[in-house]
């Protein structure tokens, strides 16, 4: 996707205006989008498109996906959520998923960081080393 410099700049400014106290603010996002729709500057659709992408990437940074081979007990899931929130801040959203391909163990992804203690990962590493 070829994006013009001007479009990128405006979208970045919009993103900067969407935060309150370092956290994404739904109300601000809505008002920023509304103001663009009202003004309709040149390339406004592309600006919104790029802004959406930046928002998605920003949201991904604040989202944790926890994969396990079998379903976890509620007590453990709440403990994990709590621990992650302590590390990444309270605005972190969590999502639990079952992935049988892991065979066992757990895999946590927050943004582009991944903690992997799954059996599959260990087997893959063993395969590489041998």
């Amino acid at each position: 996707m070829q994006v013009k410099k001007e479009v990128r700049q405006i979208a970045r400014e919009m993103l900067r205006a969407s935060f309150t106290d370092g956290q994404l603010d739904r109300g601000r996002v809505a008002s920023v989008v509304d103001s663009i729709l009202a003004k309709k500057p040149r390339n406004y659709l592309k600006i919104l498109e790029y802004y959406k992408r930046l928002l998605r990437l920003e949201a991904e940074k604040r989202h944790a996906r926890i994969e396990t081979a079998t379903a976890l007990e509620p007590q453990i899931t709440s403990q994990i959520s709590l621990n992650l929130a302590r590390r990444y801040g309270t605005d972190l959203t969590t999502e639990f998923a079952i992935n049988q391909a892991l065979l066992g163990g757990m895999r946590i992804r927050v943004g582009s960081d991944v903690w992997d203690s799954s059996i599959r990962n260990r087997l893959e590493r063993l395969q590489q080393q041998l």
């Binding site: 582009s112 960081d113 991944v114 903690w115 992997d116 203690s117 990962n121 260990r122 590493r125 063993l126 080393q129």
Partner: peptide, 9 residues
Amino acid sequence: LKTSTTKSN
């Protein structure tokens, strides 16, 4: 391999 949880990006 037993002990470690790997962190990757």
